[in-house]
């Protein structure tokens, strides 16, 4: 049962109640625009040996930060979604096409896509993230330049497409052809690295719901990505966040868009199976 560490944390930050068993100043239930209810707490997937329940990072934030995500207008990440809506119709590349040229149904064609990514892709012969699919469209269909993995245009577009799956539970496949990459991701998750000799699991599995200095450690779920972080006031990609974590533990990060990070993205996403896609979330 979690919550044992919260009394000492409660003096520093206002903490959630039901899930974490203490005072109730911040919200427990994430309802966006008064109408869309997110699943922020779910039974852990069968493959998770060390957790009983999984929690959205939203539950770990202060009430002020939580509030920012409860209304699409108050959510600063949505200005980037607006930018992506404009970008959708921008013709680029030698083929003279925009996103809209092929995807006549608009971003709504991609409802549900966020929930199953990253996934095994037979044609690519590996795990593909949403960024891969966007760049494939750009380079092969539009004959335009690929975007950098965490370019502002890219995070905005992944936010727009991800929004079509908002509320739907994450449901990435880990078996079949994906299993090799999933195992690699799991290995990376538990592998201690860097000068601080820490693994993902040390913070996000062993010590979530405790304070690391003034930060309330979450389970490191990816269901809210791309996430608007107060820290840098922009949308952050999953791989970008992985990179930041690795730098924090004084490790040499894998490259964004590397097979290692794709594998880790798959594994971490699978740890959040059952939680709602929240993108575009607001985090610290």
């Amino acid at each position: 049962m979690i919550g044992s560490n919260l009394l000492r944390a409660a003096s520093i930050a206002t903490i959630a109640s039901l899930a974490f068993g203490t005072t109730a100043a911040n919200a427990q239930s994430l309802v966006i625009n008064d109408e869309e209810t997110m699943i922020t707490q779910a039974p852990a997937a069968a493959h998770l040996e060390n957790l009983d329940e999984v929690f959205s990072g939203w539950l770990f934030r202060t009430s002020e930060t939580q509030t920012l995500q409860m209304d699409d207008f108050d959510n600063p990440g949505m200005i980037f979604v607006d930018q992506a809506i404009d970008q959708w119709d921008v013709v680029e590349g030698a083929a003279g096409k925009s996103c809209a040229s092929c995807h006549e149904g608009g971003p709504a064609e991609f409802a549900g896509l966020r929930t199953v990514l990253p996934r095994w892709d037979e044609e690519a012969g590996g795990i593909q993230s949403m960024e891969d699919y966007i760049n494939k469209c750009r380079t092969e269909r539009m004959e335009a330049d690929a975007w950098k993995w965490s370019a502002s245009t890219m995070t905005a577009m992944t936010a727009l497409i991800g929004l079509e799956s908002r509320g739907m539970p994450v449901d990435v496949a880990i078996d079949g052809p994906a299993s090799g990459a999933w195992e690699l991701g799991k290995e990376i998750y538990y592998q201690r690295v860097g000068q601080l000799d820490m693994a993902c699991a040390n913070c996000h599995e062993d010590n979530y719901d405790t304070m690391i200095r003034a930060d309330h450690l979450s389970q490191g779920q990816t269901n809210g990505f791309p996430a608007y972080r107060l820290k840098n006031a922009k949308l952050n990609s999953i791989h970008g966040r992985f990179k930041g974590c690795m730098k924090n533990i004084r490790a040499t990060p894998f490259a964004e868009g590397s097979d290692e990070f794709r594998a880790l993205e798959l594994y971490v996403a699978s740890r959040g199976n059952g939680l709602s896609v929240e993108g575009t979330s607001v985090r610290n």
């Binding site: 690391i212 930060d215 610290n284």
Partner: peptide, 8 residues
């Protein structure tokens, strides 16, 4: 104003 660990 808190000074964060990794998130701050």
């Amino acid at each position: 104003v808190t000074i964060g660990g990794c998130g701050g």
